[in-house]
Amino acid sequence: MQTIPMTVRGADLLRKELTELKTVTRPKIVSDIAVAREHGDLKENAEYHAAREQQGFCEGRIQEIEAKLSNVQIIDVTKMPNTGKVIFGTTVTIVNVETDVEVKYQIVGDDEASIKDNRISVNSPIARGLIGKQADDAVNIETPKGTVEYEIIEVEYI
């Protein structure tokens, strides 16, 4: 299995979610199942079936997180010298050459991506176009609306 790149923050968030699932969510579901069983006939017991379904989702998510964490490669750009190159984990400020709109993105792993928090997946078209480039480079990114030209304003290792 291949390694999964992740920032320190992303790995911490997954570990917290795993702890929450194991120490809070899982025991609550077990308790819900026990309570539902006391209601008698399991064939007609909606609470029991809902709790069992919830248990399946919970256990699946625990396995998924454990698998990711076992193959994680944590990349901490704050401990690297800033070469000015765009790499996984860097924060990049770009400007749309045509519209002059400036945007700042951090390039992160798939699990961490959140467009509302300006964190984009390393596998996104924008990130793929930026990786390996540096400040003052012009980059053409293929978007659904066609090719957009951006200029890289700043590359931060924060």
Rank of each mutant, 00 (worst) to 15 (best):
M1D: 10
Q2C: 01
T3L: 12
I4V: 15
I4W: 06
P5A: 05
P5E: 07
A11W: 00
A11K: 00
D12K: 04
E17D: 14
T19A: 12
E20P: 00
E20D: 14
L21W: 02
K22Y: 04
V24L: 12
T25I: 11
K28F: 13
D32Y: 03
V35W: 12
V35G: 10
R37T: 13
L42I: 15
K43G: 06
E44H: 15
A46N: 09
A50K: 13
A51V: 05
Q54R: 15
Q55R: 04
F57N: 11
E64I: 09
E64K: 08
L69Q: 06
S70H: 08
T78F: 03
T78M: 08
P81F: 10
T83F: 00
G84V: 04
V86S: 05
V86R: 01
F88I: 06
G89L: 02
G89T: 01
V95E: 15
N96T: 05
N96C: 06
V97F: 03
V97N: 00
V97K: 10
E98D: 14
E98K: 10
T99A: 05
T99M: 07
D100L: 10
V101G: 03
V103I: 14
K104M: 13
Y105M: 04
I107E: 03
G109I: 11
D110L: 03
E112R: 01
A113K: 01
S114A: 11
K116H: 10
N118S: 14
R119V: 04
I120Q: 04
S121Q: 02
S121P: 03
N123P: 00
N123M: 12
I126V: 15
I126E: 11
A127L: 05
G129L: 08
L130T: 08
I131G: 07
I131S: 07
I131A: 02
Q134K: 15
Q134G: 09
D137G: 04
V139R: 01
E142N: 10
T143F: 05
V148S: 10
E149P: 02
E149Y: 00
I153N: 04
E154T: 08
E156K: 11
Y157I: 08
